[in-house]
């Protein structure tokens, strides 16, 4: 009886998931790094707010596992990056501007029974960073500028950067960039330390790393489009969209409030302050008037 009253009260509020029967069960997935965990929590809490029962199946160990889980119907949605979907899942050359890459992943995923919702404002692609002082001294704003100064500079990057097609070979091919020295740093945190301590002039990073905002590094613009866009969007099973027509709007509302600067700050709250993704997500939704 009490349950029915509760459901009646929810229905009266006009929640998108009509609770005429039981609340729909949605399984939200994520891969295993901070940004994924935060965005998955944002999605999960917004869907709960919209009347769904949400099961969190987060921390999946990579794109392959998340994709298999979607295909097997073990999760209904997870946040993915358009460039990753195109390159890693569809195995197509990750090239093109944001609209082209989105159109390609939508076309490639549709036959698998999967939809890409409209992307958020996050584009978590590759980035080369320098200290503002280095940028001033050498007049650096773009990677083309960097190519001119590179023979005097040291680059610190991850192990794979020396060989990846979109790493050093790509920089050489598209920009003719040759650094004075290349130093390998496996852990991203070490690369930032190297930059701060002058052991490297340039480091590779990802555009939503919290350190960029906190330490005020300068991101150089990829003016000749070596790197594809990595727009963050929810990938959702079409079956789930059919079963629960109220599914997309809360996810799109969150995506519309996310951009790289916002995400850097949310990532920082987890990685630097040590807050849990669920706490960070709850605070953000509340501040945005979504909770």
């Amino acid at each position: 009886m009490r349950r029915r009253l509760l459901l009646g009260a929810l229905a009266a509020h006009g929640l998108p998931f009509s609770p005429a029967r039981a609340a729909p069960l949605l399984r939200v997935g994520s891969k295993n790094f901070t940004e994924q965990l935060v965005v998955a929590e944002l999605f999960a809490q917004a869907l709960e707010r919209a009347g769904a029962t949400v099961q969190r199946r987060v921390n999946l160990g990579g794109t392959a596992i998340a994709q298999q889980a979607l295909l097997a119907g073990e999760i209904d949605l997870y946040p993915e990056y358009t460039g990753t979907g195109l390159g890693v899942v569809l195995r197509q050359p990750p090239q093109g501007d944001a609209a082209e890459v989105l159109a390609k992943v939508r076309a490639g995923y549709a036959p698998l029974g999967l939809d890409w919702l409209d992307p958020s404002g996050i584009d978590n692609g590759n980035a080369l960073l320098v200290l503002p002082e280095t940028a001033r001294r050498h007049g650096l704003a773009t990677l083309s500028d960097l190519a001119r100064a590179a023979p005097q500079l040291t680059l610190a990057a991850g192990n794979e950067f020396a060989d990846r097609a979109d790493g050093l070979p790509g920089l050489r091919r598209v920009y003719g960039m040759e650094f004075r020295r290349f130093r390998q740093f496996a852990a991203l945190g070490l690369r930032y330390a190297a930059l701060n301590h002058g052991q490297a002039d340039v480091v590779n990073a990802y555009a939503t790393d919290w350190q960029i905002a906190t330490y005020g590094f300068t991101t150089l613009r990829d003016d000749r489009r070596l790197w594809p866009p990595y727009q963050l969007a929810a990938v959702v099973r079409q079956q789930a969209l059919r079963d629960f027509p109220g599914l997309a709007p809360p996810l799109l509302a969150i995506g519309a409030r996310l951009d790289n600067a916002v995400m850097q700050e949310l990532n920082r709250q987890v990685d630097q302050d040590g807050d849990e993704p669920r706490e960070v997500a709850a605070r953000f939704l509340k501040r945005q008037g979504l909770a």
């Binding site: 901070t34 965990l37 921390n59 999946l60 990579g62 596992i65 889980a69 987890v270 990685d271 040590g274």
Partner: peptide, 20 residues
């Protein structure tokens, strides 16, 4: 932890990722 089965690996792996 890689397949959302829980356990102590969840703490270790997210701790490694977050530098926590």
């Amino acid at each position: 932890a890689y397949i959302s089965a829980g356990g102590l690996g969840t703490l270790i792996l997210s701790g490694l990722d977050q530098g926590h």
